[in-house]
Design a protein around this nucleic acid. Structure first.
Length: 232
DNA sequence: CCCTGATTCGC
DNA sequence: GCGAATCAGG
């Protein structure tokens, strides 16, 4: 699998949105987590908040011997003064409290002006029994919550999904092969009788499971499990 | 153990 | 340039 324009683009956006290297690797398919990290660094995407603590450094004998030279080049990284200044600029009211560092939107990483992906920061919040409302990061004023309905009734499934196998229909006897993309109106599952002992029907087992060949001889590009790349 | 990202280095 | 192996922290 090679780094095509599309795949690099996907990597860039997901990386800057805060997806983990593993998630990116899964999504792209055909590459390892390490490959993603390696590529990201080669692209210069570097330096986003990682679980690694930048604070201190121990000197184990092994490391001292091995990394004596490289350490110099590694040094310029986190800049506590700048970070502190940024934190001071933030108004007391909008401190990033709720979400953890995993969430893409308002993590302290936002200081790096990335050209792409200014979106994907919509927030959904519950307004109580009335349901949910959507709020973008640019919305300064709190949206007016809709008047709560008298009672809550189950939403009717859309016509597209009415006959199809939904998430709730899944069990261990029917094929769980996804058709379409999650979030799209007609996303559903295969629903055929599953091959006993497998999560898929016989046909989809044929797609999902393939004989393991020696690395060099692996021919077919791995089947894309969700019906192929999303086209927009 | 699991996970994370960072780095190295043979290819 | 690529990515497995390895390192290091959570």
């Amino acid at each position: 699998m090679s780094w095509t324009e599309e795949r690099i683009e996907r990597l860039k956006s997901m990386w800057s949105e805060g997806s983990t290297a593993s998630q990116i690797a899964d999504e792209l398919g055909g590459v390892s987590r390490n490959a993603v990290i390696g590529k990201a660094h080669r692209l210069g995407l570097e330096a986003r908040p990682s679980p690694v603590k930048p604070g201190e450094e121990k000197e184990t004998p092994k490391k001292a011997a091995k990394a004596a030279a490289p350490k110099a080049a590694k040094a310029p990284k986190a800049e506590p003064p700048a970070a502190a200044a940024n934190a001071a600029d933030v108004a007391p009211g909008d401190a990033p409290d709720g979400p953890g560092p995993d969430l893409p939107s308002q993590a302290p990483q936002a200081q790096r002006p990335q050209a792409a992906t200014p979106d994907a920061t919509l927030q959904y919040r519950s307004v109580g029994p009335g349901g949910f409302i959507r709020q973008g990061p640019g919305d300064t004023q709190a949206p007016i919550p809709p008047a709560p309905p008298r009672r809550l009734v189950p939403a009717k499934p859309s016509a597209e999904v009415a006959d199809k196998t939904s998430l709730l229909d899944l069990n261990d006897r029917i094929c769980r092969w996804p058709i379409g993309h999650p979030g799209e109106p007609d996303f559903h599952f295969c629903g055929q009788s599953a091959n006993p002992g497998f999560p898929y029907c016989v046909q989809h087992c044929g797609v999902a499971y393939q004989a393991q060949l020696p690395r060099r001889d692996r021919r077919p590009p791995p089947p894309l499990p969700f019906g192929g790349p999303r086209v927009r």
